[in-house]
Design a protein around this nucleic acid. Structure first.
Ligand SMILES: [Zn+2]
Ligand SMILES: [Zn+2]
Ligand SMILES: [Zn+2]
Ligand SMILES: [Zn+2]
Lengths: 137, 137
DNA sequence: ATTGACTCTATAGTTACTATAGACTTTAAA
DNA sequence: TTTAAAGTCTATAGTAACTATAGAGTCAAT
């Protein structure tokens, strides 16, 4: 089964532009083109794109996915690199969760300091922000 | 006390370039320049920049900060807008935390499926990724 | 006067896309 | 067979909040 980019987009749920983008980034290429230069894809391409899409849903970067794909393509290499990459990625996600959790706390405190219907002059939020600044200063 | 951009950067902990960037984005401007066209800042500018920096640490966008600053500059306006913005920002942060928490779980499961020192061919991580893809398919 | 540190503007790069413009191809109907 | 709509092509610009240059000018101290 051979399909054009529009159908690949439909099947995969990726946009046409992002498929072209993945090609530019060397993640996925149409091995053949039509007479009129249209990209043509087969089943293996569909699977490769779904792999990419799933990895993106794990927030892996295109560079990381490129690495995974190339390892996937050379089955005899060692998997330490994959391992380490996932490990680092997990650490990054956990750091970000910690950051956002703290942020959330601060934002909620901020929100709590405003009882609507006031003029900005008396707004608890802006008061708090200005206070936070002068304390840091 | 009048300072040049380098010292403002030191005092605030912002980079020189990002201070210039905030100027381009209309958040902070040096009202005066030296004869040789150097930006000159005073105490009020320092405080404004610290305000910006603190808001950035809350992950507020430059557009949001611009809005806060302009409200801060017109004390008689109502604070509903501020309120609503913070509210939306909190919701966004909470959505992101939820997303990342789910992600973290998936990534940990993935990591658990690899016992190093194997060839990629037998790597649990890649097996899992490929499996996830074919299930979605 | 000269040196070194600082600053200026303008431009390109980062990430993973999205959105155009303008031209060409394919498919289907008239 | 002509024509029109829909799809595709490349190239380029825009997104967010910066960072990093290049090349030129300025300032402070010796
Ligand atoms: Zn990563
Ligand atoms: Zn308020
Ligand atoms: Zn926001
Ligand atoms: Zn492994």
């Amino acid at each position: 089964m051979i399909i054009k980019i529009g159908e690949l987009a439909k099947i995969s749920g990726c946009s046409v532009q992002s498929i072209r983008h993945y090609e530019k980034e060397q993640l996925l290429s149409a091995k053949i083109r039509s007479d009129g230069n249209f990209r043509l894809y087969d089943q293996a391409d569909i699977e490769r794109l779904l792999f990419i899409k799933y990895c993106r849903s794990l927030d892996l970067s295109l560079a990381e996915i490129r690495q995974l794909l190339s390892l996937n393509d050379s089955p005899m290499s060692q998997c330490d690199d994959v391992n380490q990459m996932i490990e680092q990625h997990i650490e990054q996600v956990e750091r970000r969760i910690a950051e956002l959790t703290l942020l959330n706390k601060q934002l909620k405190a901020l929100r709590g300091s405003c009882t609507s219907k006031r003029t900005v002059e008396h707004c608890g939020i802006l008061k708090q922000l200005n206070k936070a600044v002068s304390q840091n200063n």
